[in-house]
Design a protein around this nucleic acid. Sequence first.
DNA 1: GTCTATAGAATGATAGAC
DNA 2: GTCTATCATTCTATAGAC
Lengths: 211, 211
Amino acid sequence: MDTQFQKKSKPRKRNEASILSAAEDVFAELGFAGATTSLIARRAGIPKANLHYYFPTKQALYRAIINNIFTIWLQAAETFDDCDDPGEALSRYIRAKMDIARKHPLGSKIWAQEIMQGAPQIQDFLETTLKGWTLSRVKIIKRWIAEGKIASVDPAYLLYMIWATTQHYADFAHQINTLNGGQALSDKQYEEVTSNAVTIILRGIGVQVQE
Amino acid sequence: MDTQFQKKSKPRKRNEASILSAAEDVFAELGFAGATTSLIARRAGIPKANLHYYFPTKQALYRAIINNIFTIWLQAAETFDDCDDPGEALSRYIRAKMDIARKHPLGSKIWAQEIMQGAPQIQDFLETTLKGWTLSRVKIIKRWIAEGKIASVDPAYLLYMIWATTQHYADFAHQINTLNGGQALSDKQYEEVTSNAVTIILRGIGVQVQE
DNA sequence: GTCTATAGAATGATAGAC
DNA sequence: GTCTATCATTCTATAGAC
């Protein structure tokens, strides 16, 4: 029988989950090279040998986490509709990205470090999925410009600005918290930050925003 | 005699320079924990023991590089004048930050990783210099708002957006290059990116921009 | 599935000859 | 100042008893 369709045993499920959670933490903090399996195991509350029983190598564990991050990325990507109203489409996309930055800051940090290291594990994703998605959105934005719905800006650079601004709140949360009196942004503050970003970017490309 | 004022010998100068350059490279790529002194020494073209002769510990080497980054940071900070014209002041600041992102991408990456790791080495800088500078600029931006020169936006969030957008071009250069056909942005493209960022942000806060 | 013990390689750092 | 040789430690990963 193919074991692929067998149910995972209860301890396997529990252990894999706590290993993945601990690993996300450690990889985000120390990067792939800096992370150690013994630290991950300690944080997961299991002996190191058990970690290697579930994930044979550090790479395999890392790739499992990268896969989760892709899922989240796609989730946000889908909110950027081919919509007639650029204000609505972009506002929805920026809000989705801000939401992800708040809910999955570790994934964002791991992504950032991957890119900084030259994307050794995800280069194919950048060249296929990300590139394809970006080109299709560039097309939509160009149409908006041609239709006079938004100002004439370079579509790619607009996307970069959205990525930069939203991911900044995950990647640089520690700096922001320090400047916020050592406190994480409250839900209210985070909603303000989000509105602020939406307003500046939309107004910046010539879309009227109701305040 | 105090040796502090003795001239550095020629080989010391040369070796320190190539170690610092190689270390900047490796720390940017692998973070503090991931970087190894043997890799830094290899890239600097000297035996590992020599590296430890010039910089006793990995930490000492890292701190020397962090100091350089502070110098660069202050350089950009000074371009944000207390100016009557917010368009001029902000445009100059954004351009200075973009310039630094292009000229010192490694420093930007090291900074980013420091923050992501909870700023173990630079927390005091965040709490003193950075916080003080930010508060003083927040004050200036608030005055501009009170005088009706720019729209009512949260000053801190505006600064975060500027930091995010400009540093993104250093930290995520690899991703941007991949989407740019595997080529680094040309001087012309970089000037376009810069203008684009200035335009969107200024227009986003209600400042007229000449196109 | 779990865990002790450990192999084998790499790490930060140093001793000491030149 | 330079560099070989090396120490003590830590790393990834595994063997094998339970």
